[in-house]
Simulated assay, not measured.
Amino acid sequence: MNAKSSAVALFSLLPMLAGPAVSQGFAGLGTDAEGFSRPSLGTDLSFPKDHGAHPDFRIEWWYLTANLSASDGRDYGIQWTLFRSAVAPETGTPTEGWQSPQIWMGHAGLTTPDAHFSAERLARGGIGQAGVLAAPFEAWIDDWRMAATGDGADEFDALSLTASGPDFSYDLTLTATGPLVPHGDAGYSVKSPQGQASYYYSQPFYEIAGHLSLPDGDVEVTGHGWLDREWSSQPLSETQDGWDWISLHFDGGAKLMGFRLRDREGAPFTSATWIDPDGTPTPYGNGALTLTPLEETETSAATVPTVWQVEMPGRDLDVRLEAINPQAWMATSFPYWEGPVRVTGSHPGRGYLEMTGYGD
């Protein structure tokens, strides 16, 4: 990973600056988090407060993926992510100005069947260039924005979403048709046998409409979106090198979140949440979900699995995931693969796949 500027070089050390070694977990997420708050079992999530930032924790993100289609049936996918990371613990009143220890990074991606576009923004906290407000909800970095637009019961009920890069942009509206969904034990999501954990919930019920701007013109699209909210201070163990994460929308109305955390010294750790069409979640612990790579693709930077078998016997689930565009590599400061997938088998549908920790 080459630093593009002093700002990139700074962020490339995050979120591991509070710990001693970059090699501990993907992107340093397994380093010790002394001085930062840690998730604790039995803590109730609180809304709209928890839609906002948690500066006493080291790392968090607001992460939206969407499976979209044009009127001619052509598939598209978009990603919008805002990361907050702290270079040092912050206690008491948040520090303003350039002394703020908060660093922000934005990623945007747009995937078509034959092209993938990505962009990155970096910002310091405390000077207004990036941030998050809980109510009315707004998350921004430069001119990229995710913001509440309605008067629903929850701040996430209706959102607008914008981002742009050198060769693309998108402008979308999101309307939730179901409830917020906690993962794990009421939002306490365990990530390793050693007990590393995060707070984690989603809004997986967005109906989306809007337009994409591409080099060959604008495209009107509709589809489904999934927003993840997660925060922690040490979400991985020292030996976990990366993860394979899925969010799936099945044609029958149910949904599935699942992940496999790879460990260089042992078996992968898995977790899943089955979501009924009415939003009722059922969490599944380690071992209930199996993700098996079937075919690999050599991308511009790494060889990654882009066809998977996903099985969950407890739900009679046996499906095959195939990337719409196997070349959906995010060439960002922390590089990874991110793109839409088609789902066939026992529960057909569409979804998103994220894979980190592959390649150099």
Rank of each mutant, 00 (worst) to 15 (best):
Trp337Asn: 10
Ala209Thr: 14
Phe137Lys: 00
Val87His: 14
Met330Glu: 04
Ala7Lys: 11
Ala9Gly: 13
Gly266Arg: 13
Phe205Val: 05
Asp228Thr: 04
Thr112Leu: 07
Ser118Thr: 09
Met1Phe: 12
His211Arg: 12
Ser164Leu: 00
Ser6Gly: 10
Ala66Gln: 01
Leu214Ser: 00
Glu338Ser: 15
Trp62Met: 05
Leu14Met: 15
Glu220Val: 09
His54Asp: 06
Met312His: 10
Thr95Leu: 13
Pro313Thr: 01
Ile59Glu: 06
Thr31Trp: 03
Ser23Ile: 05
Gln24Thr: 12
Thr280Cys: 08
Val310Pro: 06
Tyr63Met: 07
Met312Pro: 04
Pro305Thr: 09
Asp316Gly: 13
Thr81Lys: 01
Tyr188Lys: 02
Leu122Lys: 06
Thr93Phe: 11
Arg121Tyr: 03
Pro313Cys: 03
Gly165Ala: 08
Glu207Gly: 09
Pro48Phe: 10
Thr65Lys: 01
Asp216Lys: 12
Gly125His: 04
Asp360Leu: 14
Ala7Gln: 13
Pro136Ile: 07
Thr173Lys: 00
Gly52Asn: 05
Ser271Arg: 08
Ala130Pro: 03
Ser333Pro: 09
Pro277Trp: 08
Gly128Leu: 11
Arg229Glu: 03
Ala331Trp: 00
Leu236Lys: 06
Ile208Glu: 00
Asp251Thr: 13
Gln234Ile: 03
Ala18His: 02
Asp263Glu: 05
Pro281Leu: 06
Gly131Ile: 02
Gly210Arg: 00
Gly19Ser: 12
Pro204Gly: 05
Ile78Thr: 15
Gly339Gln: 08
Ser169Gly: 15
Tyr336Gly: 10
Ala108Val: 07
His107Lys: 02
Thr344Gly: 05
Thr175Asn: 12
Asp216His: 13
Ser40Lys: 14
Ala254Pro: 04
Asp154Ala: 11
Thr290Arg: 14
Phe36Met: 04
Pro193Leu: 05
His107Pro: 02
Pro277Glu: 09
Phe83Asn: 01
Ile127Arg: 09
Ser37Asp: 14
Asp151Tyr: 10
Leu236Phe: 13
Asp316Val: 04
Ala147Ser: 10
Asp44Cys: 10
Tyr206His: 02
Glu295Tyr: 07
Thr91Gly: 10
Leu14Tyr: 04
Asp44Glu: 13
Ser12Lys: 15
Ile208Val: 15
Ala134Asn: 06
His54Lys: 13
Tyr170Arg: 00
Ser189Gly: 05
